[in-house]
């Protein structure tokens, strides 16, 4: 059995396939490039936040992961198989942002119907308990609040007992209480060892619930690390300099640099020790015109993920 797996998994993998493997995935709609070459590997058991502003390509990437659309180039695999196969086997399920519910069914009927579609599924009563829906089991979906509907989507996603759960901005439009309740349910579920990927544009959600944060902007991954690393990255200062001919690899090797970006002749270096970086640039490289900017977390996040003029490829 393991032999079968080894032939499909990359050789450096141990004995199990990654939950998610995106290799050079790009997706265009006409002339619009929604995703521009994402490489991402998520190991089983990770809780990963896909963080970025609206229009960063988060939903497009999620559609690719779920087999709802096909990449223009690159490959998408879940547990070493095609997304559609993973869906059919109940290995992956998702909580989408809006829609996807029939208003004329009750909560319990919706779950019973969805459960019937899988070869094997958890009891509707059990997922209702976990999603906190038992008291509204007989309520028509159309009469449920937004938060209850979102917990119903979550309960539906739990039915096949998936190894990978994908949440697309699951708390959009919820008030603070509903948001807290929703995350409490997710967090409790995550303790069972499921791999979870959630898209969000709230930095605090990524920070509070993810082990790993992948920052996306304009269809590309701009940062990937633990929540603490990404926060440090965001919390530090940015050293901006004119540095013709600098390469990203070279810049990343400068002591203290934890993120860098090259835009033509201008380089942006993120660091929690900006003094050391500035000293290095001025003494050991031809860089000039230095500027050092301090930022709050939110500002830094915005800067990392915001649209910049002139960096279109």
């Amino acid at each position: 059995m393991t032999t079968t797996l080894d032939t499909t998994a990359p050789s450096r993998m141990r004995h199990r396939a990654p939950a998610i493997s995106l290799r050079g995935v790009a997706k265009s709609f006409g002339s619009v490039e929604a995703v521009r070459g994402i490489d991402l590997e998520v190991q089983q058991g990770e809780i990963i936040a896909f963080l970025g502003p609206n229009g960063a390509g988060k939903t497009t990437t999620i559609d690719l992961l779920l087999g709802l659309s096909r990449p223009s180039s690159g490959s998408v695999e879940l547990f070493g198989t095609a997304p559609r196969t993973a869906v059919e086997q109940g290995l992956v399920s998702a909580v989408m942002q809006t829609g996807g519910l029939l208003k004329d069914l009750t909560v319990e009927e919706t779950l019973r119907l969805t459960a019937s579609l899988f070869a094997s599924a958890t009891e509707p009563a059990e997922v209702m308990r976990r999603a906190g829906l038992l008291e509204v089991a007989d309520r028509r979906v159309g009469a449920c609040s937004g938060g209850q509907q979102q917990r119903l989507r979550f309960a539906m996603a739990l039915l096949p007992d998936p190894d990978l759960l994908i949440l697309d901005e699951p708390t959009t439009g919820m008030d603070v209480t509903a948001r807290r309740e929703f995350w409490a349910a997710i967090r409790e579920d995550a303790e069972r060892g499921r791999t979870i990927l959630f898209a969000t544009h709230y930095l605090e959600e990524a920070d509070a619930y993810a082990d790993r944060v992948v920052l996306v902007r304009k269809g590309e991954v701009v940062a990937d690390g633990t929540a603490a690393e990404v926060k440090a990255l965001a919390a530090g200062r940015t050293v901006r300099a004119t540095f013709p001919g600098a390469s990203a690899e070279e810049l990343a090797r400068i002591p203290g640099v934890d993120g860098c970006e090259v835009r033509g002749d201008t380089v942006l270096l993120h660091s929690s020790d900006s003094d050391a970086v500035a000293r290095h640039l001025l003494t050991a490289t031809p860089a000039r015109d230095l500027e050092i900017e301090a930022r709050g977390i939110e500002d830094a996040f915005l800067a990392l993920t915001a649209d910049h003029d002139g960096d279109d490829q």
Binding site: L5, R16, Q44, G80, S120
Partner: peptide, 29 residues
């Protein structure tokens, strides 16, 4: 289908996470 089923079944058994005891959901309906 058979190949995919085999592959993922191995994965779950090793993992010991949700549903692994049952190993049930590798089948398609």
């Amino acid at each position: 289908t058979t190949t995919a089923t085999t592959t993922t079944a191995t994965t779950t058994t090793d993992k010991g996470t949700p549903g692994s005891e049952a190993g049930h959901r590798r089948a398609t309906p």
